[in-house]
Design a protein around this nucleic acid. Structure first.
Lengths: 206, 206
DNA sequence: GTCTATACACGGATAGAC
DNA sequence: GTCTATCCGTGTATAGAC
């Protein structure tokens, strides 16, 4: 599990560089330099730049699925889990101020490049969208679960974009507070929530 | 007023191409081809690519200042004017679905490129931020005018990013409705608003 | 002001030795 | 698996003729 192959190292470096510098701006030389291998060796692992992009997106998908799975385990209620999503803005605030959201900025770039991998990259958004939608459904908001999910997703994207532009941590905290209040209000109006708080996983274990 | 110089044509084409394809992805050849001049001629007007970028940003600043000025004339109340801002999402929905927000995507790209013009590009955001802040101040929300302005700005950015990713017009309409309701509620709670409706510019002219 | 020709660096990609 | 050497296209930028 711990013995990373050269291929893994390449994907890891590319993931980081694509995020920090953008996909197009990152060259083979950049990645090869970061991994400390020659450019020639590079092509043994990946035939084209698009193949690396595909691998990076797949890695990001796997990483995020893992993260969402963990939130399901840690979060006792749907509200807790949605709050975990909102909190990424705080947890990753430094990187977001420097580079924006890794999912949003990649999607935006690929759209402009009219790149074939755009659909694949959007699966990252879809992953969060579906997951958030399920949480809102569990809250008893089955009818507008997807609308609420998209709203939360859009909010986090907007905050990331402006936090990046203005390099403003206070703004992130402000907006996280606002959307958390909004979430609490949503939860308060939900019929299924009040009585279920004590039926959460951890409580059941006792 | 109507005799555009070659320089103006270049800026116009670059403006459009930077928006549609991104700054880095757009080459001199692209722009020269669009303007129907040779690449060599190009350098008579602009010495470097960065000079074109600077000119494009200045043009965008001038265009947006003009637009905001028009909204001041057309909009009777601060609420009307803020609503004008929100409505850009609807007015430009087709382009937003294809290319995102011209201001947000440029800012995001320049941040990744670590480009010197980033600060200049952010003046576009600042322009809207200040303008929106003034409108909220006029609504009697002087204390949190900037917070509200940033909130509206972030919302529009988030909607643009996701509308672009999912190419989803219904989502835009949905979110515009939501933020409009929010605005109406904000206005309803504002002490200065109710009594001032009839003191608007057009009413005063009579 | 506009053109052609050209210099030069860099990026993606391949061939073949070790 | 990893390396060096190399090809080719494109991108920025310049020189100089018209």
């Amino acid at each position: 599990m711990k013995d990373q192959t050269t291929r893994d190292h390449i994907i890891e470096a590319a993931d980081r560089l694509f995020y920090q510098q953008g996909f197009e701006h990152t060259s083979f030389s950049h990645i090869a330099g970061a991994v400390q291998i020659s450019r020639g060796n590079f092509y043994y692992h990946f035939k084209t730049k698009d193949e690396i992009l595909e691998a990076v997106i797949n890695k990001r998908l796997a990483d995020r699925r893992m993260m969402l799975g963990q939130w399901e385990i840690d979060g006792d209620t749907p509200v807790d889990r949605i709050q975990s999503f909102i909190n990424i803005l705080l947890v990753n605030k430094d990187k977001i101020q420097l580079y924006g959201c890794p999912i949003g900025t990649l999607s935006t770039e690929l759209a402009k490049l009219n790149h074939g991998a755009q659909e694949q990259a959007n699966q990252l958004f879809t992953l969060f969208r579906s997951w958030l939608g399920r949480q809102f459904s569990l809250l008893g908001r089955d009818r507008d679960a997807d609308v609420l999910a998209m709203h939360v997703l859009a909010h986090s994207q907007g905050v990331a974009t402006l936090a990046n532009a203005f390099n403003d941590e206070a703004f992130i905290r402000q907006e996280v507070r606002q959307i958390s209040d909004w979430l609490a209000e949503i939860a308060g109006h939900c019929p299924k929530e009040q009585g279920q708080q004590q039926l959460s996983k951890k409580e059941q274990e006792k």
